[in-house]
Each structure stands twice: as structure tokens, then as C-alpha cells.
Nucleic acid binder design. Structure first.
Lengths: 339, 339
DNA sequence: AAGGGGTGTCGAAGCGCTTCGACTGGGGTA
DNA sequence: TACCCCAGTCGAAGCGCTTCGACACCCCTT
């Protein structure tokens, strides 16, 4: 392995000069700089990450904590992860992958051993036991999602309350008077997962505001569960004509179920999904949907984290406004002129 | 931050003694050991990872290179990633996440800067430009999947040739004489991705051996593409009664397509999938399938890597034998007594 | 001609740990 | 009794880098 001393010798300068050429932290004459750069190239020098981290107290590594929980939709998580890694690399940082099952201890471990400089935590629950740990940790962190008490934290999330409301508004605007929210598996609600709770809140509030019926039910992932849930729903509330779905993996089977029950989409049943755009576009008919801007949120998380590392101030809570794209799964219902 | 010197002072011993207590590399009297351990606890000491890495030339971090390529099935990749992280933690290692789009340079970067001790590389192509780099790198690596020339490498993979053959054998045993392989998107074949190529090879060879018709076609992910592909297939080869599918995301829509075309599964068309068990079990009917033991392969990859780090010898190529589980999507065809 | 202020470079002191060789003292052997 | 050996501990020397203060040297001012 070639060290900074080898480069210094080769270029005929002191090691510290090489360091300053590489970091740009002091002015170096053009002549010296170029000579050093040539030596770096010639020898194929790569700074040793540990030595650098030890001396500078910066590892240039971010921790990314991803959930491995039941009911989480994997492709969306991967989009977050990918965005985080890609953006981290833009800022010359690497990403250490932690799974949520290490819990709060895992955060303490990587933070207190100075393995990482900062943390990105996904899948935050309303009352998350990692939150107090994050508050005490001697390094910045950013949460994707946010707990009940976001004080002293930096959180970024899609505004799921608005997302739930948008769906209701869209359907209500089309004249639908009875709506249902087909949500995530009940385990997700029981964990008090923020995004699920908030969508529900937005859905319920908007339904009230618009004076329409808004019922909600969790839904598991198996075909039978979907079939049973929808049958139950439609027998309890036969007049439902608008469905909001926040549960990506059931979307395909749900369309089958509706077909099997003789409900055409959108003629008999309008449907709005909260899901990634490509999923919505892949269905037949294409689904009206509120998209999940995973890439944007992942980018933003890393950018905020880097800003905090450099001593900048970032807002405590950033809510990304949702956008609804109307596609072929929703259509007007009833006599709109009286609505 | 509390350092090893603080612990040593607190326990009334030398810093090196603390180090030896922690590493177990020299014998320490029970008395001293316990005193040191109490001090470690009392002060909440965590060794500094960079200092440790610098002094010991071991970072205790593995690199995991995951693909972000078109056509890859995300949930399966996450299963690999999860298994790798979990097993790495069992061996007291962490995992640095790299995306494949950093290419060979990314491998060199993390290896030569001593950021990691070893690498796990997923989604290996038959002629992978990262392979020569891996051969030269001064540290061990394990590939999940394997290139044409696996010499000097350590590779682990499901035996996809056998997987393809198993599917054919299963269908042929049931009396089917005309089979088709519905494969991955053509981009995956064009990249010369090992698993896709090998399944194809196994499928073709087995069809030949069994004296049955075996045609193959790639298939994109959109509904229209699936519909078109299947229609084309059935019009070119109307007598096809057995389908092998290696393309997880199309499984749901494919069942729709068959239904729409009036082919009942399994009465009119038997279907074997190469996919994760939970996906197979979620369908109606449940699918006969060859499962992808992602967890087992991920575990095995890390175990081999750790063994190599400790100087052990590991086989160059480990092929995990596939297992086929018959479920409700395959049934006998024709007059079996004459087959 | 003397003084002052940049600019560019160097040397040395750490960063917190591991590891090597050396030392001590107690127990066994000859 | 003299010797040796081993278990247990210590001190010091690094690992490869960053960073601080010091120091030339040159140019400009007065």
C-alpha cells in the first residue's frame, strides 16, 4: 500500500503538503500542487480511510437504517435506499447499511464507535424507541417519516395527511358520496406507523369536511384476505363507489377481486391508489394515484444531513406535498349538477 | 468520548491490558479481566472503529454491491441484502452498501482505501468487467452468481441450470409435450446475466433430453407486453400446455392474461414459476415453483467470506441445488400411460 | 534601508488503538 | 538452593493521516 509519505517523497515535499493539496485547506503554489498531483497519479495513491477518519474525526460514512418489518413495501424502500446511496456519493460519503432489528442499540453502536458521522433512519413509528436515542447521540440524524414529538429532530416525509385528503377530494369532486380506505395490514397500524396513521387521519377529516361517508379497513396481503375484506366492506356498505388504497402489494389482486365480484373499474367502482407511479401505470386500467416521491425524499434526507454536518441549520420537519395524477381508474358518479 | 486510556486508568492497568481483555489475544488473570470489564461497563466504553482499523489493519466492514439494473426483481435482492447484513453482524462485521453503478472503480475505491476488508458482489454477468478487478484486489471477495470464467474466484449461486431442468422434468413427468419458458426482460439476457442464461440452458437441454418441444421468449413487465408475448406464443405454438416462468413481477398479470385468453390454470395450462415461495403461495391457484433460497445463499456468501478472511480455503464454486414444490398450478396432461 | 504582511511550506504532535518485546514473580524441576 | 519457565502485565512503537504553529521568503510600504 502506498502511503502519503511515499507520495511526499516522490514529489519532494512534506507529507503535510500532500495532505493540503488533497484537501485544499491551505493555499499551495500551482507548481507544487501539480507536482504532487502527478505523484499521486503515478503511484496510484489512495488515502487510507481509517487513518483519515482517526485524524480528522470524520469517517465520511452515513448510516442508513432500513426496516425489515412485516407489511413494509420493499420496492419503495429500495428506492429510498438507492437515492440515499447515490446522493451520499455525490457528497463523497459512503453508506453503512443497518437493519432495524438491531434497534436503538445498533444506532448507539455505530455512532459511539465513530463508525459513521450521521444517520438516516427510515420507517419511524409515532412512538419510536429510537427517537430518544437519536436525540442524545453526539451526531446529526435525519428521519424519513416522523414521530409524534419531532422536537429537536430533523424529519422528512411525504405529507400523508394531505395525501389521504387529496384522494377523498378527488373522489368527492367526481360525485362519490361513499368512500372506503383500504389500508395497510393491521400490524402496520398497530405499530403506530406514521404514514399509515396520517393517511387515515387525512382521509377521515376530509370525508367529514366534504360530508361524505368514509370508512376504513386494514387489509392483509393474501388473496383470500383481500377478497374477504372487500366482500365484507361491500356488504356492510353497499353504496360505496370510491376506494382509496394505500397498500401497494395488494393492488394487482384487488383488481382481480373487484372483477370477480362483478365491479368494473372505474364504471362501478372508482379507485385511487397511494403508490409509486410505475405501479399505477402498470395496471389495467392505469390507476389514478398519489405518488410516493421516494427519490426526492431520499435525496433531501442526505442533503439535510450533510448540511447539518457542516453546521448548517435545517428545518425540523419537511413535508413534501403530495400530487395526485388522475388516470383511468376514477370517473364521475351520479348527478354531478346536484353535488 | 471515553478512550481505552480512560478505561485503563479507571481499572488501574495499562491500556494494552485493556486491549488484551477485549480481544482475548493474551491470557489475563480472572481478577484483572473482571476489573477491566467492570470499568468498561461503568464508563460505557466503545472502542473507536477507525483507531482500531488503523492499528489492526481490519475495518470489520464488508462491502455489498447490489444491482440497480433494469429488470432485476427488487424483493429478492432485498432478501439477499438482509441475509448478508444479518450474517455479517453475527460475525461482528458491518456492511457498506455500494450500488453497481459505481462499477469497477467503486470496488477499487473501497478496497484500496481500506474502507472494507472484503466484498460481496451480486448480479454477476457472464463477462463481468468487475471480475478482473476482483481478482487483482488485495482482499477476498465472494460473488453471488458466477461469470463464465470463475477461476480464482469464490462464487455462490442457485444451480439455475438444474432449476430450468427441474421445471421441464416436472412438466414432462405430468405428460406435457410442448413447453415454453417465459423469461426475464430481454435487457437481462442482453447483459448476459448468468442466472437467466443458465435457466435457459437447463430448460433447453432438458427439453431435448425429454424429447419435448421447448420454446423460450423474454418478457417485459408491462401488462400489454405480457399479453402480447403470450398471444404470440400461443399462436405460434398452439399446442403448448406447460409454462415455465422466471420473472417474478409478471406472475400476477400473467395469470390475468391467461384468464382473459380463456386458459384455465392448471386445467388448460400448467405453470411452474422460479420465484420466492411466498410469491408462489400468494397466487390463486398457488403456484408450483422452484424457490430462490436467498437467505441461505446470502448467509453462505458471508460465511465463505469470513472463512477467507481467516485464511481458510473455500470452494471456488458452490451451487445450491434447487427444489421444486408442486402446488396447484400444474396437473397431468394427456394420456400418461402412453408417455 | 528598515519594517510589515502575505504566501507557501515544513516539522511535529497527536488521533485511539493493537501488538511486540521485555519484564516480573511465583511455582516447578533438578 | 539455583535455575528455568510460564502466566500475566507493562511500555513503547507504530498504523497513516490531519492540523497547528513556526518559519522563510518575497514584495510592498514608509
Amino acid at each position: 500500500m502506498v502511503t502519503i509519505a511515499d507520495v511526499a517523497r516522490h514529489a519532494g515535499v512534506a507529507a503535510s503538503t500532500v495532505s493540503y493539496v488533497l484537501s485544499g485547506k491551505r493555499t499551495i503554489s500551482t507548481d507544487t500542487r501539480e507536482r504532487v498531483q502527478r505523484s499521486v497519479h503515478a503511484l496510484g495513491y489512495r488515502p487510507n480511510a481509517s487513518a483519515r477518519a482517526l485524524a480528522s474525526q470524520r469517517s465520511n460514512v452515513l448510516a442508513l437504517v432500513i426496516p425489515l418489518r412485516t407489511g413494509m413495501h420493499v420496492p419503495v424502500m429500495m428506492q429510498f435506499a438507492t437515492a440515499v446511496v447515490t446522493t451520499a456519493r455525490r457528497f463523497d460519503h459512503d453508506v453503512l447499511l443497518l437493519t432495524a432489528d438491531e434497534g436503538p442499540d445498533g444506532l448507539e453502536r455505530v455512532a459511539q464507535s465513530s463508525l459513521v458521522d450521521a444517520l438516516v433512519v427510515m420507517d419511524v413509528e409515532l412512538h419510536d424507541e429510537r427517537v430518544p436515542v437519536l436525540r442524545e447521540l453526539p451526531m446529526p440524524s435525519v428521519l424519513i417519516g416522523y414521530p409524534d414529538d419531532a422536537d429537536g429532530l430533523t424529519c422528512i416525509d411525504l405529507d400523508f395527511v394531505a395525501a389521504g385528503a387529496h384522494c377523498v377530494d378527488h373522489l368527492a369532486d367526481l360525485g362519490h358520496r361513499s368512500l372506503a380506505l383500504l389500508g395497510t395490514p393491521s400490524a402496520v397500524y398497530e405499530r403506530q406507523t406514521g404514514f399509515a396513521q396520517r393517511t387515515l387521519t387525512g382521509f377521515v377529516e376530509a370525508a367529514e369536511r366534504r360530508g361524505v361517508l368514509g370508512v376504513e379497513t386494514p387489509c392483509e396481503h393474501t388473496f383470500d384476505a383481500i377478497l374477504h375484506t372487500v366482500e365484507q366492506l361491500l356488504s356492510d356498505h353497499p353504496d360505496i363507489t370510491g376506494l382509496v388504497v394505500q397498500n401497494e402489494p395488494i393492488i394487482g389482486p384487488l383488481l382481480d377481486v373487484l372483477r370477480r365480484l362483478g365491479r368494473r373499474v372505474p364504471e362501478d367502482m372508482s379507485l385511487v391508489a397511494i403508490c409509486a407511479d410505475d405501479v399505477a401505470e402498470r395496471q389495467v386500467p392505469q390507476l389514478s394515484s398519489v405518488s410516493i416521491p421516494a427519490e426526492r425524499i431520499g435525496d433531501q434526507a442526505v442533503e439535510s444531513l450533510i448540511a447539518k454536518l457542516e453546521g448548517g441549520e435545517v428545518p425540523s420537519l419537511t413535508l413534501v406535498p403530495p400530487t395526485l395524477t388522475a388516470r383511468g381508474s376514477t370517473c364521475p358518479h351520479g348527478d354531478l349538477t346536484t353535488a
